[in-house]
Amino acid sequence: MRFFLLLLLSWNCLGVHAEPVELTMANKLVALAEYRKGTPNKPAVILLHGFLQTHDFPTVHSLVAGLVDAGYTVLAPTLTLGVTYRKQSMACEAIHTHTMRDGMEEIAAWVGWLKARHHGDIVLIGHSFGSLEAIAYLSDKHDQAVTRFIGISVIEGRLTLDAAQTAHLIAEMRLAANSGEPRVVVHQFSFCQRYQSTPKGLLSYLEWTPRRVLDAAAGLPVPSLFIMGGRDDRLGNGWVSQLKVRSRVKIIEGANHFMDGEYEFDMIDAVLAELKVS
């Protein structure tokens, strides 16, 4: 029944009001996004996709549908990751030249773009690594129009290394990045076993260690809620518990990292409930 309703919502929302959006970034790359205009008196939502994904990722897509149906203006951009007009999710083995900073700047660009069209509050919602990108953006300098943050299945930038090893790797990447020579490194990162990237790019992500993420999440300048799946197996042990220590966390029991299936509604309900609060 829920699935039927979801399809109905998808048809109503995506088929009528979808508007592709192109935005040329400062580096001349063109970024793509999906824009859904909602009720003016409701906050607009920027939905950020996960690591190497696009705004067409199912979890993002479900959230777009739920929010549009609830009358929220939604902007779902696809970060370029160094590829102009990027429409495809990127492979781990691709030559990644993008950095965390690039993502933060593209979020800022999209906030600016949205703010030019929506005069109300802006809520950042991120899924998985998109939550981390949003935390990084909010932790650095954020537009005041952004008033709330919801992180879904926020990830810790997991490495299969202990702290010492991580530190050693970071040092190594810094050295390589500072050498100025165009080179790429291949290393395990996040869900990629062979993540091929420039040292600078990899370093920008490695520097967001779990501790840094917990600290940043706890110190966000806007109200935030972390919605986590009770059966998310992509997170490190104790990550949710650590997150709960200093941040507001809602656990959807039984849901995995992607909140798919019947848990999509729980996820949307939780998001909508949080948006109502604001």
């Binding site: 990127m90 030559i95 030249t97």
Partner: peptide, 21 residues
């Protein structure tokens, strides 16, 4: 392919892309 456009924009790693990627 996105990566093809990527190489036409930033050519620093073109030979790597051409010969391996």
């Amino acid at each position: 392919w996105d990566e093809t456009r990527q190489q036409l924009v930033f050519t620093d790693y073109y030979t790597l892309w051409r010969d391996a990627r």
